[in-house]
Structure formats: structure tokens, C-alpha cells
Amino acid sequence: MEERRASKRCGGVLPFIIGFLATCVLGWAVLPGLFYEEIEQPFKFSHAIHVESEGMDCESCHYFRDDGSYAGFPTNEGCAECHAVDPEEAMEAIAEAGIDPSDYNAIIAAELEVIEDNLLSGEDENKAAEREYVVKYLIQSTEVPWLNYQYQPDNVYFSHKAHEGLDIAELAEMKNELSSVVDSAVFDEPGEQNCNLCHMKDIDKNDTPPAFERNIISGYSKMTMKMWKCERCHALKGQPNACYTCHK
């Protein structure tokens, strides 16, 4: 009897451990990935081409307006400064060719001069991406529905201006305290600008934009900074953590 009991007790730990380990592995390695779906950006926008090949600055598209607000994503108006396809002319050409202006594939296939002659890219792959932008957005006068990796909900007011002066080198002193907020790799090579603190690291060198990882329950981005992270940094920097510092 005693023997049997002992063996049972011993055997009782094993299933527990199996169950424990199984869900631990599942919970750390598998499940988190299932919470996110990958959504591609509207078209393949290459930072690398614009920055490295064309020598554009970050501020060419991402700048502060005169009122101190931040123009995060470029608008058609900005893009059209270089991508000089005239929407009116293009639409006229499309009408002349008898194509439905909402049939993008037909427009692309028609290889209209007014579009083709104004494409700036060299390689075919890049040209295709540029053509896609021009046809789907620029000539339609529709703004690109960029997906914001750092998406924040409407109740958050984030001021880029207030964070403009944050210096990565200075923050490096708090590297350990901030380890759960900021990827420590950021502190290894602090650049002139502090964008890497919160934004995708070295996005300016990126050629194919990574997919936007959307949480299937909350709808937020995987990179959405949660409130506790904001609060941690604010506390460390001696900044207020009152509700209305960031909420609206």
C-alpha cells in the first residue's frame, strides 16, 4: 500500500511538470505570435531609395509644422513635389482611354504616357511600386492609408515636439532602468536623432517595409507603446504623469 502511494505521488509530479512545461513553452513561444496578424503597408515604400539613393533628409517628409504639430506621414501634396504626375491630366487620359478610373489594374496595364513618362524609378521592381502609388493614390487624390507601427488610440495626445530634445546619449545613463521600455540596442550607437527610441530601428535604411503586426483583439500595433512604458520614462525623467499630460 505504502509503496503504491509513494509511486503515485512520484508519478503525480511528472504529469504536473509535463503540463507546466508544455504550457510554458506554448505561452512563451507559440501563443504570443497567434495574437497578431500581419498586414502589409499599402504599397512597397522604400526608405532606402529615398534616403540613400536620392539623398533626402528625414525632415523632407517628417517635419514639424509651423504650429509645432508633427507631420508624421507624408501627404500626396508632399510626394507630388517629386512624383509629378498631374492628377487632372492623368484622369483625362484615363477617360480618353475609356478605362474605369477605379480599375487600377487596367490603368496599370494601359501604360499611359502621362503616368509612365513621369515615373522616377529605374529598376522594374521599384517602378512597379511607384506606379502602384501613382495609380492608386496620387492621381485618385486619395491619401495613402499608411499603417502606423506606433499607433496610438484617439484618447492619447502624443507631442513629438515635447520629445524632440530627448537625447539618446543622455538617456543611456538610465539604460538599465529603461531596459523594459526601450530596446537596449538603441543605446549602442546613438545617432543624431532620437527617433530610434520609439520607432522602428534604422527604418531609414529599410527597403521593403515590414508588415504591420496588428493585435487581433485590441487592434493596436505590436509596437504600440503601452501607458506603463510612457509612465516609466516620465517618472525617470521627472516629468508629470498626470492623466491630462497625455490624454484627451
Binding site: F16, I17, G19, A22, L26
Partner: peptide, 10 residues
């Protein structure tokens, strides 16, 4: 026992 383990594990 495995279920309990799994629950604790998760």
C-alpha cells in the same frame, strides 16, 4: 495533475 500543471504553467 497535468491540467493543474498546465494552469500553473500558463
Amino acid at each position: 495533475q497535468m491540467s493543474v500543471g498546465a494552469t500553473v504553467g500558463i
